[in-house]
Every structure is written in C-alpha cells, then in structure tokens.
Design a protein around this nucleic acid. Sequence first.
DNA 1: CTGTTAGCGCGTTCAG
DNA 2: CTGAACGCGCTAACAG
Lengths: 341, 341
Amino acid sequence: MKRRITLQDIALDLNLTPATVSRALNNHPEISDKTKKMVEETATRLDYNRNKIASSLRSGKTHVIGVLIPTAEPAFFGSVIHGITNIANSSGYDVIIYQSNEMYEYEVKGIKAFMSARVDGILASISKETIDCSHFINAKRNGIPVVLFDRVNNDLDIPSVTVDDYQGGFIATEHLIEQGYKRIAHVSGPQHIKAFYDRLKGYRGALQANGIRFDASLVYAGDISIEAGKAAVENFLKLPVRPDAIFAVEDFAALGVIKQLKARGIKMPEEMGVFGFCNDLFSEHITPGLSTIDQQTVLMGQEAVKMIFHIIDNNNGMYQPSKVVLDPLPVIRESSLRVST
Amino acid sequence: MKRRITLQDIALDLNLTPATVSRALNNHPEISDKTKKMVEETATRLDYNRNKIASSLRSGKTHVIGVLIPTAEPAFFGSVIHGITNIANSSGYDVIIYQSNEMYEYEVKGIKAFMSARVDGILASISKETIDCSHFINAKRNGIPVVLFDRVNNDLDIPSVTVDDYQGGFIATEHLIEQGYKRIAHVSGPQHIKAFYDRLKGYRGALQANGIRFDASLVYAGDISIEAGKAAVENFLKLPVRPDAIFAVEDFAALGVIKQLKARGIKMPEEMGVFGFCNDLFSEHITPGLSTIDQQTVLMGQEAVKMIFHIIDNNNGMYQPSKVVLDPLPVIRESSLRVST
DNA sequence: CTGTTAGCGCGTTCAG
DNA sequence: CTGAACGCGCTAACAG
C-alpha cells in the first residue's frame, strides 16, 4: 500500500506551505487564481485525497449526519433514507445509519455512537419501546442538533418532520363513511407513539363529525404487523355485530387484515372495506389494491435533512424548534371502493 | 453548549496523565485494576464520550465501513443494509451509506467520499451503468479493502458475496419444465452485470439439460423494472407461437409480467406460468403469489461484513480474494404451480 | 496574497 | 505500573 499524499507533499512539490495549499483547495478568497490552479493541478496529478478525519478534528465539523431508524427492512425507511442521503451527499455530507431494531437500549447506543463520531446532526425516528427521551436531550445539550421524523415523541421540544396523522386518520375514516360503510373498526398501534395516537384521534374525529357514535369495542389495540391485523379480524368477527369496514393504523396491519378476510372468505370491498396507512411499496400490488394514506417518505427525508442543515448553519444559539407537517395523501384503490352504495 | 469532556479533564480530576487515562479506558493490560475502576467511574460521572475523530486520526483506523448501493428504495437493499449495520454496529463499527442512483458518476463520487472519510473497508454493489471498475481498484491500491455483493463485475479480482445466479436460473427454469410448461420465455437484464448474465445462462442450461431447444425469440432483453416486464409480455404475445411460461430476471420485472397478463385476461398459472428472482417483500403478498428465488438478503449483508472484517483484521498483505456464493432458495407460490400437468 | 505558529484530542513510543 | 513527549494531517490566528 502506497503512502497517502498529504498537503505537505503538494506544498513541497510547489515550494509552498501546507497552509497555503489548504486554503487553495478550500477556495479561500485570499488566494490568487494562479496558485489555486497550480495547486489543483498537482493535487490531481499526485492523486491527493483530503483526510477528512484530520480536517474534522481541526475544524470541529465532521460533515456527517447520523440517521437513526427502527429498522431498514421495510420499504418505508429505505425510502426515507433514499431521500436523506441523496440530498446530504450532494451537499458534501456523509450519512451514517444506525438501527434500533425497535429496542430502547440500541437506540441509546446509537445516539452514543453518533456523539462519539461527533456527527454534526442527528435525524431520528424513535423505537416502539422508547418512552424516556433523555438521550436526545443529552445530544442537544452537547451541541448536536436533533430532528425527529415520522415517529416523534408527544411532549418533546424537538423540531420534527411528520405527516399530519390526525388528518390522515380523519380522511381515511371519512372516505369509508362516504363509501357507505356504517360500522367502521380501527386497528390501532402503541399509543405512546404520537403518530398512532393521532391516527386514532383522527378516526374518532371523523366519526364524530359525521354523527356516528364511537364504539370502543370497534378499536383493537394492535400493532404494525401482519399478525396484529389477522388477530384484529378474528376479534372483530366474534363481535355480536361485526363491523363492515376496517381502518388499520399501518399497511402491514392492513395486509394482515386482508389476508385473514380472504381466509374467511369475506369479500372486499363488498362485505368489508379496508384502509391502511403508509402506502408501502407492496400496497399497490396486492389484491385487492390497498387504499391507504401516502406519507411522502422521500420528501419526508428530504425535509428532515434540510431542516437539520438549517439548524447546523444557524447555530448561533437562537433557533426555535419548528415542526414541519406534511399533507397526508389519500391513495384510493379497490379495497375500499364500493362501486355504489 | 457545554465544552466536551476530554481525557485531560479526567486526568486532572484524578491527578493522572491523559496517557494513563487513555490506557485505562482501552483496557490496557499494564494498568492496575484499581486505576481502571477509578477512571471508568469518573468517566461516567463526567459524562465522558471518546472523540472518535481524534482517535481515528491518531490510530489510522476509523472503524467505519462504507456501503455503496444503487438505491435504498426497494426492499432488497434495505434488507441487506439491515444485515450489514446490525453486525457492524455490534462490532463497534459505524456504517456510512452512499447511493449511486444507478449512475456511474455518483458511484465514483461515493468511493471518493469513502476514501476521504478514511473508511476501513468498502462494501459495494455496482450500478447498472458501471463497466469500468478502476475506482474500486484505486481504493484497494490505497489500502482500503473492497468486497462486492450481489451486483459484482465479471472479471474483477475482488472478493464478493453473491447468490449462485446460474443455479438460481437453472432451478427456476427446471421447476417450470417440471410443471409441464413447454415454451418457456425469459425476461433478461443488462448482460454486463454478472448476476443477470448468469441467470440467463442458468435458464439455457436447464433447457439443454431437459432436451429443449433454445429459441432466441423467447428471450426479451429487458431490465429490472415493472415496465420491462409489461413490455416483454406484449412482445411475447406477438410471437407466432406464444410461450406458456415466463421466467423474469427479477421480481419487479415479474410483477410487470403479472400485471400485463392480468390486463390481457391471461390466467396464471393455467395459461401462463410466471417465475421471478429476488423474493422481494411484495412477492408473497400479490395475487397470484409470485414463485421466485430467495437471495437471502440479510445473510448476504452479514456475510459481506464478516468478510470485510476478516480482510481488515488480516491486512498483513497476503489475503487471497475469496468468493462466497450463497444458495438460491426456491420459493414456490401460485404463479407457477399448476395443480396437475 | 502567503508564511509561521500552534493546537484540535488522542494513542504510542520511550523512560523510569 | 505510570509519566513525558511527540505527532497523526489539517486549519485558524496572526503576521508580514
């Protein structure tokens, strides 16, 4: 392995000092164009490659963003990462990924790793287990700005990018009502996660706005999993009066609902309407096509990076936490579309 | 923002020198247990957090792995990342992600960024455009080991983790033959990518092994996209004698095939058998369920990290590039399963 | 416009 | 078992 070329090497080659070479490469205004050109030429000739580590140590900026997600497995977070890294990379930032695997312990470890790596900013989506959020507060106290996306905490003074979950739940439920469904059930998710809490609220809001009495037995305390959806169906079918539509808190849960309804020979959308939330990649391609709420995942990632860049650039102390709320986009497919009332 | 705690702070607090504190925290054998305990206590008390940057600069090791993928959008790469980061993180490594967006230019930029970040190793899956691979050679020359996964180059002396694509193509085709299909078509992908090239070869191999003459008109030069699958179907239906089964090089292409066959009212698997490759998340949930080859994505990621760690640990020059080839696992679903011949 | 000096925080010599 | 001194490669401050 050949020794790496340093600023020193370029400087010696041109009878300059490392400092000048550094400034030239950083396009410092006080360097003559002639020198800049010379330096750049020898840099490429010698195949120079800046040591980002040394640069970071000296400048105190790493140009690295840490992204903490529950898991990269479903398409959802892959899509957000897609949005994040493309913008970050084209702005000269590196992105490091850490997965909590939905566990509080790993989430805390991830933040520690980010602090140790001296990232310039953190984007995070909290795990299902997470209730105590002091690790985020701690990062902020250490001067690392944090932006939460999608899965945020209810009462945290941290900027965030989310979709309007209340509105999404409202739209989904109201759509089912408009399609003539009378008894609409809901498969909910863990309530300490604001997104899931808000979707339930949106569901209730739509019922109320349309003069339908809320019936607690029509809410199944589920989760974002296929199994939860299946279990919810079994639960609903045992009721004295079964529902005629199900709004699931998330697409995988809705998928479970669909699978179980199929297994029971219940026709969608005729006998039972189904609505999801997320617009995961598969939703379009299953049968029946799943009606759902698009969360604009790529955009969500992009907005989150933009926000963190904004905070990084204005770190003169006074930054007021802002919340970006994206519009939930209804995507209507066969699972909820009755031809006529 | 409070100043970050350094080794110096701990040293002052305990009347020691930074050197001793450093050794204590690194569990150096020549430090007394008593001192180690003291140091660790004050470290946690002062909320010390090692500056990885300074450490990297000094030691020459960053404990960072760069992962270059075409795109994080489909579930496939998300799944690989899942496998990679979990092992890497639990081994104290950070993972930085870069997307080529299937473009050669960005791929080269990504490798440059990794070199600049002084990553200890690179895992990469090459873009569709990539033909010249000198950027990988260059990284190796600079002492950064490279392991390719899934999308590798034909004639490169670089260790890699792939699935046995020939075998996969063979199994898929032979399965269709066993199901009684007589005219089996193939939607192929860009041939400079070894994986796609091998799948075509496996297809031909299975035909030959079963005494079926290869017919060039039954191979559609496609791509890994829904559109390619749809176009392939249109192409095949125009033939004088249409095929009765289609093996697509990848699941999205197969999805396009299924969609177009549905649009044309052609029944699967009765009139046309369909087989994919990848076992993407959606394949199980569409109708009909897509028969496909599972690539063991999570395992692939894990094997890739393990291999790069192995190389990093034995960087005493002599490491012979090895190729790990995973078994392709057939997953048979409705799209190719005729009840009887 | 360029050179000089110094130091970011750590780990690794070499002493003792 | 611990301390003293140095340097990884770069950039910021101050000269000139």
